[in-house]
């Protein structure tokens, strides 16, 4: 298999202290069933740990799950930590309990897409397929 045929590699990450991993695990499994290579960080990760894992594992995108209300702090922190490690081209998307008015500020901070309650797994898998591109050709 040539490098370009490598399946897209996605890091599903749980940032912060809350233990709500139902959604993250469902998305991880749906993406895996959709043909992606998925790495799941497990719970209670700091932005530094997530960015480190993303760079080390050479992922093409990071999907961040946050249900703790700390999204305005943690999403930008992950993007900043990625940038510091030379991973500014890693696509960051996410999901959780995020009020509409915060979605716009997260987009401005560089989050490619936020999925909120009611999004289907097909919708998320289709979006990833359409928007995530291999970082190295």
């Amino acid at each position: 298999m040539g490098l370009s045929e490598r399946p897209l590699r996605i890091l599903i990450a749980k940032a912060g202290l809350d233990g709500h991993d139902r959604g993250a695990k469902i998305i991880a499994r749906a993406l895996r069933d959709g043909g992606f290579e998925v790495i799941y960080t497990g719970l209670h990760q700091t932005p530094e740990m997530i960015a480190e894992a993303a760079v080390q594992e050479d992922v093409d995108a990071v999907g961040l799950s946050i249900l703790s209300g700390a999204h305005l702090t943690l999403f930008p922190a992950v993007i900043e930590e990625l940038r510091r490690r030379g991973g500014s081209d890693v696509l960051v998307f996410g999901g959780g309990i995020v009020p509409d008015e915060d979605v716009a500020s997260l987009a401005a901070a560089g989050v490619a897409r936020i999925f909120t309650p009611g999004a289907t797994t097909q919708e998320i898998v289709a979006w990833v397929r359409e928007h995530v591109r291999p970082r190295t050709a």
Binding site: L17, D18, S68, A70, T73, L74, A77
Partner: peptide, 10 residues
């Protein structure tokens, strides 16, 4: 530092 962004939120 691990409390960053989460104080008083949930």
């Amino acid at each position: 530092p691990r409390a960053r962004g989460e104080v008083g939120r949930e």
